[in-house]
Computed example of a mutant assay.
Amino acid sequence: MLQHQSEYTWMSFMISFRMLQPQIFQLSVVAAFDALTSSEKLYAHHMSRAAWAGTRIILRQVSPEANGIFDLIIALHHACDGQWEALSQRTGVGMPDIDRFLDYAATFLSNVGNYIGSGDQKFIPDISPESLTRLAAVSPSATQLLDGIKVQLYQQLPNCLGVPNGLAQSAYYLGNDCLKSPEDTSAILSAMEKKGVFPENTRLRKSTPPDGITVYDLLQASVQQDESDLDILAADKKLRLIRGDHKQELEKICASLLSASQNVANPAQNQLLTELHDSFLNGDLNTYRSSQRIWVKDKAPRVETVLGFVEPYRDPLGVRAEFEGIVGIADTKETFVLRKLAEMGSRLIP
């Protein structure tokens, strides 16, 4: 695990990073997928597309530069069609540096961002900025993407997620000193509770326009867009609700949910998808909570899904949630073995 110390040089930081080699495993799902019915396969497909569409939401929640890094990785892959040896020859960048870039790309994609998923510490490419610039020169789009994120990509600070300061950053809180005032933060949470607005699918942005009135914008994830004054926090401070955060991603998710609803296994799944769709459409988390009560009643489905703003661990206040999308297919043989083991548990454990 990397920890920042003021005496670290850029090179010593990179040497520390070289100890973190990504482990690559192949997930074999062919047998499990082939065992599904045609309808179950279509359900799994469309739910997987919904989960994947949420990737950019997660990236946006992790760091301001994460979506740009993702685009750069994809742009370089497209530029060489995955033929990295050919890219090495075209750019004059040696394969050791190519491997360092691929190590970074694998780590980034595995963690869905440039901060470690377990520990929330930033990791930096082991390839030098000069070599990465030469790689990006293979296409104008890659060059433009790198120019937009190079500083953030390589800078050591902030080096972790947390309350925004010199050492940490949080993409849940935008604008200068968004969490500087504990009194404002408490008043905002109280106003949200009073108005029935849940925090999980929101971000908070602070701005001070020329009129001197401090404005806190509560950015709520939804397809529908509008804004309204939510509360007056003080004579010179107000809170607004702005719907439409992550709009483009949620539109794709809603479209996939509608397609998946044509291939549900039972009425409960149909109701689940309907309420998930409506929640993502209008941002209402009461509807989302209702969908989860349905979800727990769908016992042992062949295709298991988790979708929504559910994990609050990365929010320094512990109330705003990271988007999560998971689609799992039950392995019939392994499930049978585990069920038998569970039945034997009382005899095996005294």
Rank of each mutant, 00 (worst) to 15 (best):
A321K: 00
P267K: 10
P182S: 12
I15K: 13
I232V: 09
I69M: 09
V306C: 08
G175C: 04
I213K: 03
E40I: 15
D147L: 08
Y154V: 02
S28D: 11
Y104C: 04
H246T: 06
H277G: 12
Q83T: 11
I24P: 08
L27S: 14
Y154H: 01
Q220S: 15
V138D: 03
S6A: 14
I73Y: 01
P125F: 02
Q83H: 12
R314T: 14
G328H: 04
D229E: 15
F13W: 11
L281Q: 02
A342Q: 11
I73E: 01
L2T: 08
A260N: 07
Y43R: 02
L2W: 07
A75R: 08
Q225D: 09
A142K: 00
G92W: 14
S346L: 15
F33Y: 12
I349R: 07
L167R: 14
D217T: 08
W52I: 09
G166Y: 13
I24E: 11
P267H: 15
F70Q: 02
I98W: 00
Q262Y: 10
E304H: 14
D278P: 06
H46W: 06
K180I: 13
V327L: 07
A35L: 09
F33R: 09
K238L: 10
Q26C: 15
Q220W: 13
K180R: 13
A86D: 15
I149T: 01
A137V: 06
A330D: 14
M11N: 14
A187F: 05
A171D: 04
H246G: 03
V303N: 00
N282C: 11
K297Y: 10
S290Q: 01
T202Q: 00
A50L: 06
Y288E: 08
I58E: 02
L102Q: 08
I326P: 10
K297Q: 09
N270P: 15
T133P: 02
L285V: 09
S228V: 13
R18K: 06
